[in-house]
Simulated assay, not measured.
Amino acid sequence: MSGKLAQLHDMLAPAVEALGFECWGIEYLSQGRHSLLRVYIEHPEGVTVDGCALVSSQLSAILDVEDPISGDYTLEVSSPGMDRPLFTLAQYAQYSGEQARIRLRTPYEGRRNFQGIIRGVEGDEVVVLVDEHEYLLPIDSIDKGNIIPRF
């Protein structure tokens, strides 16, 4: 997790959890003069529009006071959805056996994109089976990981 993401997580996750939700993960996309801060929330009974609005209101107040992002930005609060992004080793372990799409920050064995079955976690690495070959991908090298929904 980058320094800015860690700062935002440490600032926002306690507020999300105080409202009875799990802070599933945070994405911060700096896009020149206008950035996007997306906070994914989870709840055992599901996430509703009202739940997102409640969390958004609370986080907006915190962000206004703390002012961790310079310039304009948009705050989005969302459910992780069916193609849920994965942020932590615990989340990858939880979805062991599921199909996932993983993109690395830098190439590993000549490739950055992997699509396969999550086999689990070993130490600080995610084990992914792609075309009968297991890859151990360090969590710190993963730029983005998502579950591929089954219909």
Rank of each mutant, 00 (worst) to 15 (best):
G3D: 06
G3W: 06
A6Y: 13
A6M: 15
Q7H: 14
M11Q: 14
M11S: 12
L12H: 07
A13W: 15
P14K: 05
P14F: 07
E17F: 08
A18I: 12
G20R: 08
F21K: 05
W24K: 01
G25Q: 01
Y28C: 01
L29R: 08
S30P: 03
G32I: 03
H34Q: 01
S35M: 06
R38N: 03
Y40W: 05
E42V: 03
P44T: 00
P44A: 01
G46K: 00
T48E: 04
T48Q: 05
D50I: 14
G51C: 03
S57A: 12
Q58K: 12
Q58S: 11
Q58G: 07
L59D: 07
S60W: 02
S60K: 06
A61H: 09
L63F: 04
D64V: 14
V65C: 11
E66K: 12
E66L: 13
D67Y: 15
P68R: 15
S70L: 12
G71R: 12
G71W: 13
Y73K: 12
T74Q: 15
L75Y: 05
E76A: 15
E76T: 15
S78L: 13
S79K: 06
S79Y: 05
P80G: 07
P80R: 07
R84M: 11
P85M: 10
L86I: 11
A90N: 13
A90I: 08
Y92G: 02
Y92F: 14
A93W: 09
A93Q: 12
G97F: 00
E98N: 10
I102P: 03
R105E: 06
E109D: 09
E109I: 08
R111E: 04
R111S: 06
R112F: 04
N113H: 14
N113V: 13
N113Q: 15
I118C: 12
R119C: 02
R119K: 06
G120A: 00
G123I: 06
G123P: 08
D124F: 04
D124L: 05
V126L: 15
V127K: 04
V128S: 08
H133K: 15
Y135S: 09
Y135H: 12
P138S: 03
I142M: 05
K144I: 13
G145R: 10
I147P: 01
I148T: 09
R150Y: 11
